[in-house]
């Protein structure tokens, strides 16, 4: 994406363009065009895309700096910028944020524990009906999340009526719901990287005396790790941002961050919601930068299959 030839444009004057057009040849390599319109168009389009993608965040962060009186709508640009709302974030939101981080982290972990062996089985296993199994692992992505949420709630009622163990409104119940939608991402990214995996690496490891377990730990796992990171990141984000499933499986006093924000917006909106949202944006930015340092974002995104 980076363009480093920008100073080439200055060497062409409009006079150059006239002579170049006059000397247009019918055969051979195409002559250089006078002005790099293609490049300008490229810049223009990239700028538009960035504006489109970044403007909501800029508005949220900007409006969170609102320094005036209490105001019931988003005000952008903010007048008298201050950080006052950052000190007024309700305790409930911070608790919900803590729950969401914990839940998303455990979801990413659980998705890896289920997803890596599943992907290995799908790619390597000599089991009949592999296409079916792989389709089953993709299925959660094809069901609208709100349907999944209702289905889980219904399931928990039925299960509870039968056994007396009610999962709705418990951490475990919520966790299972999140695992359900997050695991396919890990299966997808790990499958993608395993399909390109050179099995000779494992044969080399065997020939050097390494057992199957040791080969998996020292060779296979490190080589597929970029796919695992990518899948885990997706799983984390899916869990962290989920509303449609969580809204059915949480209970008063036990809510995830997006649900808490949702209620906050509905009932008593104030700019502290914007402030806490901005904090999350900054935190995510930090995590992404950390990932970039750790594994390289390119590898991460390239290994993603979807």
């Amino acid at each position: 994406m980076a363009i480093d030839k920008s100073n080439q444009t200055s060497s062409y004057s409009s006079m150059d363009m006239v002579t170049r057009l006059a000397a247009r040849r019918p055969v051979g390599p195409p002559p250089k065009r006078g002005l790099p319109w293609g490049k300008y168009f490229h810049y223009f389009f990239c700028s538009l895309s960035y504006i489109f993608l970044l403007s909501p965040m800029i508005v949220v962060i900007g409006a969170s700096l609102h320094g005036g009186e209490y105001y019931t709508a988003i005000k952008f640009p903010p007048d008298e910028p201050s950080l006052q709302w950052y000190w007024k974030i309700p305790k409930g939101q911070l608790e919900a944020l803590g729950l969401s981080f914990g839940l998303a982290g455990l979801t990413a972990l659980g998705a890896c524990i289920i997803g890596i062996p599943a992907a290995l089985g799908i790619v390597r296993g000599k089991i009949p009906g592999k296409t079916l199994i792989s389709a089953v692992f993709r299925a959660p992505l094809q069901i609208p999340a709100i349907v999944t949420g209702i289905a889980f709630l219904q399931l928990y009622y039925l299960f509870g009526d039968a056994t007396g163990l009610y999962f709705q409104g418990t951490f475990l119940g919520l966790y299972i719901g999140h695992l359900f939608v997050a695991t396919p991402y890990v299966v997808g990214t790990v499958t993608a990287i395993l399909q390109r995996f050179d099995t000779r690496l494992e044969e080399a490891s065997f020939s050097l005396g390494a057992s199957k377990l040791s080969t998996f730990r020292r060779v296979t796992l490190p080589v597929i790790m970029p796919g695992v990171y990518a899948g885990a990141l997706y799983a984390f984000m899916v869990s962290f941002g989920d509303v449609p499933i969580s809204i059915f499986l949480t209970a008063p006093g036990f809510v995830t961050y997006p649900i808490e924000l949702f209620y906050g917006m509905e009932n008593d909106f104030d700019p502290s919601i914007l402030a806490s949202a901005s904090l999350v944006i900054f935190f995510c930015l930090l995590v992404l930068l950390g990932m970039q340092k750790l594994v390289g974002l390119d590898t991460l995104l390239r290994s993603g299959s979807r």
């Binding site: 000779r200 080399a204 490891s205 020939s207 060779v219």
Partner: peptide, 11 residues
């Protein structure tokens, strides 16, 4: 064992 494409561990 020595393989045609070397199969050195990249990591």
């Amino acid at each position: 064992m020595v393989f045609q494409d070397y199969a050195l561990f990249p990591h």
